[in-house]
Amino acid sequence: MSAAGPGLTPELFWLLMTAILAALLWVPFIVLSSRPADAPFQSFARMARISEMSDITQRAYRAHLNLLEQFLPFAVVVLIAHLAGVSNGLTLAACAAFFWLRIAHAVGFIAGFARMPLRPLLFTGGWVCILAIAAAILLA
């Protein structure tokens, strides 16, 4: 993937795409928690009790939180790499892989087909991408 604009490196492009994913991933939870089956939660008059919602609604909630758990360290290492001028095949591959792993994780988690051991493997893949970028920075 080439840079999308001036000053936007491929790594920053993938960071931007992941930020957009994180900004959109709350939508499935809101849509699912507003369904008639979850009628007590439609008014938003009180804090939702996630444990009382449908399984798919709970999975959508967790998928969003799970992405946010990995997004912060991913964003930090990508920004440090950018500021340090570290950009190579490893950082590009790790950034792209991180994004696609997070897509697969979210879709699989919400749909319910990414179960043991697939979901933890997808999460671990993202973690390895973060560590690979950090290693590229430290070894530069």
Rank of each mutant, 00 (worst) to 15 (best):
I137P: 13
L90Y: 08
V107H: 04
A39Y: 01
L139K: 07
I103S: 11
V78F: 14
V86E: 06
G125I: 04
I56V: 11
I30C: 13
I110R: 05
H82W: 15
T124C: 10
M47P: 08
S51F: 06
V86C: 12
I133S: 02
G108N: 03
E11A: 05
F44N: 14
L131A: 14
S43N: 11
L122C: 03
A114H: 03
A104S: 12
M17W: 01
M17G: 04
P28H: 06
P73K: 05
I130Q: 08
L72A: 15
R62K: 12
V27G: 05
L83Q: 05
G5C: 11
A75K: 08
N66M: 09
S87H: 14
L25R: 02
G126T: 01
G7V: 02
A81F: 11
I110Y: 01
I137C: 04
L65N: 13
I20R: 02
A84H: 06
S54N: 01
L67F: 03
H82N: 11
V128H: 04
S2K: 05
L12Q: 02
A37C: 05
A39L: 00
H82M: 06
H82R: 12
G5A: 14
G112H: 02
V128W: 08
A94L: 10
T91Y: 07
T18F: 03
S2E: 12
L92E: 15
L21E: 15
G85D: 12
N88V: 02
Q70F: 15
P10R: 00
I30Q: 07
L25F: 04
F41D: 13
M116P: 03
S54Y: 00
Y61C: 14
G7I: 09
C129F: 09
A134R: 07
F29L: 13
F71S: 05
A93S: 12
A134I: 09
Q70R: 11
N66Y: 10
F44H: 10
Y61M: 12
L16M: 07
V128C: 13
L16W: 11
A3L: 08
I110F: 04
I30S: 09
V77C: 13
D55S: 02
A75S: 13
L16T: 06
F29P: 04
A134D: 13
A93H: 05
E52L: 01
L24A: 14
E69H: 01
V77D: 07
A106R: 08
N88Q: 02
F109G: 00
A45H: 01
A84I: 10
F44C: 06
L32G: 05
W127R: 02
G5D: 14
L21A: 15
S54W: 00
F113Q: 05
W127L: 15
A48W: 06
I50F: 14
F98H: 11
L79W: 04
A96W: 08
F123A: 05
I133N: 03
S51D: 15
R46P: 09
L90R: 05
S87C: 11
M116V: 03
T124P: 01
I20L: 13
V86H: 03
S87I: 14
L138Q: 03
F44M: 12
M1I: 02
G126R: 00
C129L: 02
I20E: 09
T57R: 00
F98S: 13
R62W: 13
P6N: 07
L67D: 05
